[in-house]
Design a binder for these strands. Structure first.
Lengths: 252, 252
DNA sequence: GGTTATTGTTGATATAAATCAACGACAGCT
DNA sequence: AGCTGTCGTTGATTTATATCAACAATAACC
């Protein structure tokens, strides 16, 4: 449908942009009625960002809110000596940059090529006030994020390296490509980020992540030689592994 | 003021309960106008819970939302083998139990004697819909919680035992009792929870927590022999410690 | 198409924190 | 006051993961 391209410019405030947005249903934007999408389009600006672009910088003024429409953004916090903790990966349909503070308490950087819709703060405020369903949807999204954060705290505070990697792979597992795909065919896991990013997300070192993935491959729980795409052979085994439901075995 | 006691019954839906609530200003309830507090009082029920009471159980139906008016509640997640991660302590003015899911994804248990106002889900829904300021305030609170959770992920994933304990003490430091109190007099830290709880919050063992607190005491960063009340002698030193801004020294 | 830089893997060793173990300090109870 | 159980402290030892080190694989670049 070449019509789509015609209406969807890279950086404009084209009134039809939101109407033709593929992922609207998956994001906070679904809360705005079809008839009022022009308002949404006017409140935001679509940006295309190359890999490794800084979106938000810890400590800088919190001027904007972003909705990711394609690609993956990593969110992280750093210590003065450079140690880093990735607190999450925001991909398609997820937002970032919401805060009550004057400045951001975290940084955000694109992992791959990313498209975002940027809402400046006053515009976001207006949307929240004028569209209660928008606010409700955002509340619901933040509540989900909080639940995910709590799950990640359990991982970081109490899980072993093996359990962390298993949990991570499961959490990134895509829904089966076609519905009649059997489990044994294996589910794809997309890993656009590097080993460094995975390590910084799981609170491990790259060496430990690498060794653990190798071990899972060796014991046929996963396959795939490509570093950014892994296939899970046994979801149930990985599930057991992720919660420590497994007898012995370590990494080496 | 004995009048207050007269209006504030333990479990009733007394229409004046919210009007005389000491901590309303500190919680989501501050979003409801004075003239409409009767609605708030009717939507909720005040409960007094002894120490060690289970408020919410992981996996059970998410039927209620709670606002803590006194005492401390610990929120936690557990693994099948009993490992536990405390994801936060909800004390005065904080809420718990908000979720989009049918069931709670965490457990909650009182640390000491706790007073909560319980809102059943339909009543909460009504409040959110009828009072946009209430919803806005809740969004703001959840956003803060998320920021705190991200800070805790940094702690759990990347900080040393010493840095974790220092961060914890700082985060629990009370504002100075009187304004003209000098820093050197020391700020009180209240620790109603046990060492087990602290350990499960910081992703450490009780032994490591104990040793680390002893070390901080030995080097005069903190004092106080009482296990549930510690005095910080040097806030600046603790701040440096918490972010790894310190040359050497370990725990022993 | 070969050189260089980046990213990932594997092995050897070190270490921070866990585990195992003993004991001390209280709080509650009769 | 003396018993009993919980909670906290301290010491000795083990261990999972970090660190140090070398190299392999892949991507980036003239």
């Amino acid at each position: 449908m070449p019509l789509r391209r015609r209406f969807s410019t890279e950086t404009g405030t084209d009134l039809h942009r939101c109407l033709v947005c593929d992922i609207r249903a998956q994001s906070v934007c679904s809360a705005i009625d079809d008839t009022e999408l022009a308002i949404l389009a006017q409140a935001s600006k679509r940006l295309t960002l190359p890999p490794g672009t800084s979106v938000v910088e810890e400590g800088s003024p919190a001027v904007a809110f972003y909705n990711v429409t394609s690609g993956t953004v990593k969110l992280f916090k750093s210590l003065p000596d450079g140690r880093r903790q990735i607190t999450g990966f925001a991909d398609i349909g997820h937002f970032l940059g919401l805060t009550n503070a004057e400045t951001y308490a975290f940084s955000a950087e694109t992992v791959d090529t990313v498209q975002v819709c940027r809402f400046l703060r006053p515009q976001l405020e207006t949307l929240l006030t004028d569209y209660p369903q928008f606010e409700r949807r955002l509340l619901s999204e933040v509540t989900d994020e909080l639940a995910e954060a709590q799950e990640q705290m359990l991982l970081l505070g109490r899980k072993t390296a093996r359990e962390r990697v298993a949990s991570f792979l499961l959490s990134r597992m895509l829904p089966p490509a076609n519905p009649n795909q059997t489990e044994s065919e294996g589910c794809m896991v997309s890993l656009p980020m590097t080993r460094v990013d995975i390590a910084d997300y799981l609170g491990l070192t790259i060496e430990t992540v690498s060794r653990t993935i190798s071990a899972l491959r060796r014991e046929q729980t996963i396959t795939g030689t490509d570093n950014h795409g892994i296939r899970v052979l046994s979801v149930s085994r990985l599930t057991d592994l992720a919660s420590g439901q497994t007898s012995g075995q370590n990494n080496r």
